[in-house]
Amino acid sequence: MDSSLTPQVLADPVALTRALVDIESVSGNEKEIADAVFAALVPNERLTVERLGHTIIARTRLQREQRVVLAGHLDTVPLAGNFPSTVDDERIWGCGTSDMKSGTALALHLATRDADPQFDVTYFFYECEEVERERNGLNKVAASHPELLQADFAILLEPTYGLVEAGCQGTLRVRVTVPGRRAHSARSWLGRNAIHDAGELLTRLSEYKAREVEIDGCLYREGLNAVRITGGVAGNVIPDLCEVEVNFRFAPDRSEEEAARHVREVLGGFDVTLMDVAGGALPGLGAAPAKAFIDAVGSAPNAKLGWTDVARFAALGVPALNYGPGDPNLAHTREEHVEIAKIESGAEVLRRWLFG
């Protein structure tokens, strides 16, 4: 076992958060933290522990009527002068404190408890969430061992500041190509300015009326926005090409195909190329374990405005939501931190829900 993950540390979710933060694990460099988590889990005879790359899967086999999932990623974004951690009376500061080692610590704390939960539980501690989806540990599990993701309900311990955020939006990106005709800028009338012609596209986007839809009491807001624009050849040349990257965040009642069709309709007349798309996740709050968990939290759920790995479970028909102690507004910042009280209250909620 990693010397920092002693039984005393594993029993204290606050100390465990700090111990995980102090193992540097920028995406692609998760070996050390995965080794430590694996070593912490193996001694627990209640668990079957497997490893796929730097993703650790631990499962109870108690023959309960229902199985639930707790999942947290091990990686962080690149350091920003915020490693190792520091602590004051109220907060732990450092890279990954909010996103999402405080949530991952809760899962590891629960997995190593000397007690039997009321559900069978699958715990995922996975690699490469912060980078391209091909490297994502849950994506690799879904591709090679999808049966391990099967459950009656899943919680992704992403930062939500102690609130339940149900489901998630889908996300789609397209590249819109606007052609022109190159000419010398001194004789601009001989060409056609592709950047100028992109103005109509930008006007459509700025005037777009985004849809709001309520699902299971959660309000999802859509958005269609230009997020990048490129064009131009030189300071004395009329550009013959302009490309605009557009991102559509869509409510989970739309399929990927419906989202793509909607964007093409809005941008009709332009050359639109689909770059990537990931479907959303419906709230799925009707599942019995979900209802019990929301009761344990004691507050109404909100819509998740963003995409998270809950969508991977939803694609398999597994209801999933997001819940974690971190503040999502602090994720990826130099000032990233987590409130100690949120870690403690989150641990208490999950203990009450899992162990009664």
Rank of each mutant, 00 (worst) to 15 (best):
A300V: 08
T203W: 11
A288T: 05
A341I: 03
L74D: 07
P283K: 07
P301F: 06
S299M: 15
V318L: 11
T104Q: 06
D276P: 06
E127M: 14
E50M: 14
S85H: 02
D271T: 13
E90R: 07
E158V: 10
V87W: 03
R135F: 11
V68C: 05
E147G: 09
L285C: 07
A251C: 10
E24C: 14
M1S: 09
I294W: 06
A288F: 00
E243N: 12
S185E: 12
A234M: 03
E344C: 03
P239C: 08
T86Q: 15
R91S: 03
V131L: 13
D271W: 09
D89L: 04
G199Q: 15
R46L: 12
V21P: 06
F293W: 15
R64L: 04
V237P: 07
R254V: 00
T203L: 13
D35P: 13
P283W: 02
L241G: 02
E339C: 02
P283E: 00
V14A: 01
D309S: 05
T273W: 07
E147H: 15
G356A: 13
T177C: 08
D216N: 07
E348G: 03
I343S: 04
R351S: 05
G162F: 01
S102D: 00
R228M: 14
A290P: 12
N139D: 09
K342P: 04
V213Y: 06
T177L: 11
R67Y: 04
L172E: 11
R133M: 11
S102A: 11
A314S: 14
L285R: 12
F83L: 00
H184E: 13
R18C: 02
E30K: 15
P283M: 05
R228S: 14
D22P: 08
Q150S: 13
R249G: 00
N322S: 13
T177E: 14
L354P: 13
P78W: 02
A34H: 09
I215T: 08
N82F: 03
E212F: 06
H332I: 10
A234H: 07
V164D: 05
A151C: 10
Q66G: 03
G199V: 08
L16P: 15
A107Q: 02
L267F: 08
G53A: 14
W307T: 08
H262N: 06
I57T: 10
E258C: 08
A19G: 13
W353V: 04
A320D: 04
W307K: 12
G217W: 12
N29S: 13
V14T: 07
P84K: 05
E212H: 15
W189S: 08
L274C: 06
A251K: 13
W307D: 00
D120V: 05
P43K: 09
G162E: 05
R59I: 02
A111T: 07
M275H: 10
H337V: 02
R46K: 12
N236M: 10
C218W: 05
R67F: 04
H109E: 04
Y208E: 12
N225Y: 12
H109M: 01
E132Q: 15
A11K: 15
L41F: 01
D89C: 02
G284M: 11
H73C: 08
L274Q: 00
N44W: 02
V237W: 05
T60G: 09
L224A: 09
G269F: 09
A320N: 08
A315Q: 15
N29V: 06
H145R: 15
D276Y: 12
L224I: 09
G280E: 06
R181E: 07
A198Q: 12
A154R: 08
